[in-house]
C-alpha cells in the first residue's frame, strides 16, 4: 500500500519534472545563459574592433558611474550616463502614468459593454500589435513631425504660423511609448475588471457612495492586481526601450537602451555595454521591489 503510493508519488514527481523540462531548458539557454555571459563580459577588456579580450578588468563598471577628466585626470560622476539613467526612469514613469490615465477608463469602458461586443473592442485594442513596431513608430513620426499631418493642418487652418516642434523632444518619446505600450496596460486591467462583480458597484451606490467614491473605494482596490501588472508590463519595456527613443528622440534624447546599443556598435566597448545592461536590470529590479512594496502596503492598510 505504502509502496504503491510512494511509487505513484515518485512517478508524479518525475512527470512534473519532464513537463517542466522544456521551460527549464529555454530558461537556462535563453535567459540565464546570456545573462551570465553578459555578467562575465562586463568584467573583461574591450577588443579593438568590438568583442572582448579575456583580461579581467573592472574598468567597464567604473565607467558606468564615474569618469576621469581628460584634462586634469580628476575623478567625477559620469554626468552623461547619469542623465541618461535619469531620463530613462523619468520617461518610463511618465509613460506608465499616461498609459494608466488612458488605459484605465478604456478597460472600464470595454468591461462595461455587453458581453458580445467586448471581444470586438479588445480586438481594436490589440490590432496595432499586429503591425511592426518600427512602422507604427514611423506612423506617429509622420503625424507629429514639422511637415507632418498635425502641423500641416494647423498651419493650413491659420491657427499657428510656424510648425510646433513636437518631434525629437521628450514629449514625442513619451507619445510613441504610450502608443506602443498602451495595450499592455489595457489588457491586464480589463482582465481584472471583467472578473469584477458589478453588483459590488451597485452595493457601493446603494450605500451612499458617489461615483468617485465607488471608483476609489470599491473598483480600484478590486482591480489593483490588474493595475499593478499593467504598470509593470509598461514600465519594464519602457525603461529598456530602444526603437522609440531612437526614432522619436532623433539621437539627442538617448535612453539606456540607446546607450547600450552605442557601446556594442560604434563605441566598440562591449564590456561597458554589458555593464550598462546589468545596471538596467538592477534599476528594473529595484523599481519593481519598491513598487510592489508600496502597492502591497496599501493593501494591508485597507484590510
Amino acid at each position: 500500500m505504502t509502496d504503491l503510493s510512494q511509487n505513484a508519488a515518485r512517478r508524479a514527481i518525475k512527470t512534473r519534472w519532464m513537463l517542466l523540462a522544456p521551460a527549464l531548458i529555454i530558461l537556462a539557454f535563453a535567459a540565464s545563459g546570456p545573462l551570465l555571459i553578459t555578467l562575465v563580459y562586463s568584467f573583461l577588456t574591450p577588443g579593438d574592433y568590438g568583442g572582448v579580450v579575456w583580461d579581467f578588468s573592472t574598468d567597464a563598471w567604473f565607467n558606468v558611474f564615474l569618469q576621469r577628466d581628460i584634462f586634469d585626470d580628476t575623478l567625477g560622476w559620469s554626468d552623461a550616463h547619469l542623465s541618461i539613467f535619469w531620463r530613462s526612469v523619468k520617461l518610463s514613469l511618465l509613460t506608465t502614468l499616461a498609459c494608466l490615465v488612458f488605459g484605465f477608463p478604456t478597460a472600464y469602458f470595454i468591461a462595461t459593454r455587453p458581453k458580445q461586443h467586448r471581444d470586438l473592442w479588445m480586438l481594436l485594442i490589440i490590432i496595432p500589435f499586429w503591425t511592426n513596431l518600427l512602422i507604427r513608430t514611423f506612423a506617429i513620426l509622420e503625424l507629429i513631425r514639422n511637415e507632418g499631418t498635425i502641423n500641416t493642418i494647423l498651419i493650413a487652418l491659420g491657427i499657428i504660423d510656424e510648425p510646433i516642434q513636437m518631434l525629437f523632444t521628450e514629449f514625442s518619446i513619451i507619445l510613441g511609448m504610450v502608443y506602443v505600450y498602451l495595450p499592455l496596460m489595457v489588457l491586464p486591467i480589463y482582465a481584472s475588471m471583467e472578473r469584477l462583480d458589478f453588483r459590488l458597484v451597485e452595493a457601493g451606490y446603494d450605500l451612499y457612495a458617489t461615483r468617485f467614491q465607488v471608483l476609489r473605494r470599491v473598483i480600484l482596490p478590486l482591480v489593483k492586481p490588474g493595475v499593478i501588472a499593467g504598470s509593470i508590463l509598461v514600465f519594464v519595456p519602457s525603461l529598456g526601450a530602444y526603437v522609440t527613443p531612437r526614432v522619436m528622440g532623433g539621437g539627442n534624447q538617448l535612453m539606456i537602451g540607446n546607450l547600450i546599443e552605442l557601446q556594442f556598435g560604434q563605441g566598440r566597448n562591449w564590456p561597458l555595454g554589458a555593464a550598462l545592461s546589468i545596471t538596467l536590470l538592477a534599476i528594473v529590479m529595484v523599481a519593481l521591489l519598491a513598487y510592489v512594496r508600496v502597492a502591497g502596503k496599501e493593501e494591508v492598510q485597507h484590510g
Binding site: R199, L200, E202, A203, G204, D206, L207, L222, H302, G303
Partner: peptide, 26 residues
C-alpha cells in the same frame, strides 16, 4: 434606501466591520 442583495455583495477587500460601517462612512 438600502438593499440586502441576493448574493449579499459584501466588499471582499474589507473586514466585516468595515463593510457594516461603509454606508455611514460615505
Amino acid at each position: 434606501i438600502n438593499t440586502v442583495f441576493q448574493n449579499y455583495a459584501l466588499f471582499p477587500h474589507m473586514t466585516v466591520a468595515e463593510n457594516i460601517g461603509f454606508g455611514m462612512e460615505m
